[in-house]
Amino acid sequence: MRTYLLRRLLQAVFVLWAAYTVSFGVLYMLPSDPATIMAAGGGDASTVTPEQTAALRHQYGLDRPLAEQYGTRLLHAVHGDLGRSVQSGVPVTRMISQALPTTLQLAAAALLLSVLLGGAVALLASWTRYGPLRQLLLSLPSLGVSAPTFWVGLVLVQLFSFRWHVFPAFGDQGFDALVLPSVTLALPGAALIAQVFAKGLRTALAEPYVQTALAKGAGRGRVLFGHAVRNASAAPLTLVGIMVGNLLAGAVVVETVFARAGIGRETAAAVTAQDIPVVQGVVVLGAVAFVLTTLAVDLLLPLIDPRITTTARRAVPA
């Protein structure tokens, strides 16, 4: 178990370093000049003099060699300093910490809904013996995956806000304002969970031990919930860890559609203004969320299937 945990921790550190390095390389290859954007203050860049640009470039170390900039920024990032916004001059960590609670609330609600909806569809499809209902339930995940998030959000706003006046269309105050955005963000994840979980349940229900239990008189519900669910949970649980990054990416669209404050709107504004430190800070945040979630999943998986740690020990050379 110790070797298994050590390998996962080393992988987590590598993922964080790779995310920071790749984002640094991609963002700094953009044709824009952060010093010019900063000097313009969001206004017309043609009014900025070369002297102003040179002074800001020297002040923020942008005139140093790229390798030196990378090493300095990486060292600062390790100590929690992600730089300052090019537009506002506010520290990126402060901007993220102020916008993060609203996005975390949305992501947590969407993740919970994804698990509940996806799990319910998969369990009902595996439990029912009515063929048409099973086929209908198994076709829902494909529809959920193919529907664009922004389209789902606009349809929900049109129906539940403008036509039926059940939930507010915009804003982030109160529980009512959270319902439509969380449902919009949850549907693609719920579809994926339903697909993977339903396939795992079908495989588990076809195992010889299940057929033996049914032959001995065990009820279908007891076999499904007592045996098949646990054996089919490893793949959906792993998928949940991967989904966290997708939820943060989806929050950009959802928060824009529903006019919610949060990381998504900060990211959209930073991309539009080519605010490199903010964009890189959001990329690092997504990597941290992905690493923490997958690490938690890696710790839970051996509890569901102890064979995982056995396989990990066999994979380590003697």
Rank of each mutant, 00 (worst) to 15 (best):
Ser46Arg: 11
Ser88Val: 05
Gly43Asn: 06
Arg7Met: 05
Val271Leu: 05
Ala218Gly: 03
Leu10Lys: 04
Phe14Gln: 10
Val223His: 01
Val257Tyr: 10
Ala110Trp: 07
Pro101His: 12
Pro317Cys: 03
Met38Phe: 06
Ile263His: 02
Leu224Val: 14
Val291Ala: 02
Leu66Phe: 15
Leu159Tyr: 12
Val145Gly: 04
Arg134Tyr: 13
Thr267Arg: 00
Leu205Gln: 15
Ala315Pro: 06
Leu123Glu: 10
Phe258Pro: 06
Gly241Trp: 13
Asp63Val: 04
Ile242Trp: 03
Ala234Met: 03
Gly264Met: 14
Phe24Pro: 04
Ala215Lys: 00
Leu156Glu: 01
Leu185Trp: 13
Gln173Pro: 10
Thr3His: 03
Gly217Cys: 04
Thr184Ser: 01
Leu113Phe: 05
Leu185Gln: 04
Asp305Met: 01
Leu6Arg: 04
Leu117Asn: 11
Ala35Glu: 03
Val316Asp: 01
Gln195Ile: 10
Ala198Asn: 10
Ala270Pro: 04
Ala147Phe: 13
His76Val: 09
Gly119Trp: 09
Ser233Cys: 01
Leu178Val: 12
Ala110Met: 05
Ala35Val: 11
Gly119Ala: 09
Tyr130Asn: 11
Tyr28Ser: 07
Leu116Asn: 03
Val244Glu: 00
Phe14Asn: 08
Leu301Ala: 03
Arg220Met: 08
Ala261Arg: 14
Asp172Lys: 04
Val244Gly: 02
Leu140Thr: 10
Val297Lys: 05
Ala268Thr: 12
Trp127Lys: 10
Ala270Asp: 02
Gly119Val: 13
Met38Arg: 15
Thr128Tyr: 03
Val196Ala: 00
Gly89Met: 08
Gly89Lys: 09
Arg230Ser: 02
Gly174Asp: 08
Gln98Pro: 04
Ile308Thr: 05
Ser182Lys: 08
Phe162Gly: 01
Phe258Val: 11
Pro132Tyr: 13
Ala122Glu: 02
Gly71Asp: 06
Gly264Lys: 05
Val86Ile: 09
Val48Thr: 11
Leu138Gln: 15
Pro148Met: 06
Ser161Cys: 05
Val282Arg: 00
Glu255Asp: 13
Tyr20Asp: 04
Gly80Pro: 13
Thr3Ile: 15
Thr103Ser: 14
Ala251Leu: 07
Leu185Ser: 03
Ala234Ser: 10
Ala125Trp: 11
Ala289Ser: 11
Phe197Asp: 09
Lys216Ser: 01
Asp44Asn: 15
Leu75Thr: 15
Leu301Pro: 04
Thr102Lys: 10
His58Ser: 14
Gly174Pro: 08
Ala109Asn: 07
Arg7His: 06
Val271Phe: 01
Phe170Val: 12
Val291Glu: 03
Val15Arg: 06
Thr256His: 09
Lys216Phe: 02
Ala99Lys: 06
Ala204His: 13
Asn231Ala: 09
Arg202Glu: 15
Ala12Asn: 09
Val223Lys: 02
Pro148Gln: 11
Asp172Val: 07
Ser97Cys: 05
Val155His: 07
Leu224Gln: 07
Gly131Ile: 14
Ala107Val: 15
Leu74His: 07
Leu16Pro: 10
Asp81Glu: 11
Ala259Lys: 15
Met1Ser: 14
Phe150Ala: 08
Arg94Gly: 00
Ala228Met: 12
Val86Phe: 02
Tyr209Glu: 02
Pro65Arg: 05
Gly250Cys: 08
Val26Ile: 12
Asn246Cys: 07
Ser85Pro: 12
Gly174Ser: 05
Ser142Arg: 12
Ser23Val: 13
Gly189Ser: 07
Tyr70Lys: 02
Ala261Met: 13
Val240Lys: 02
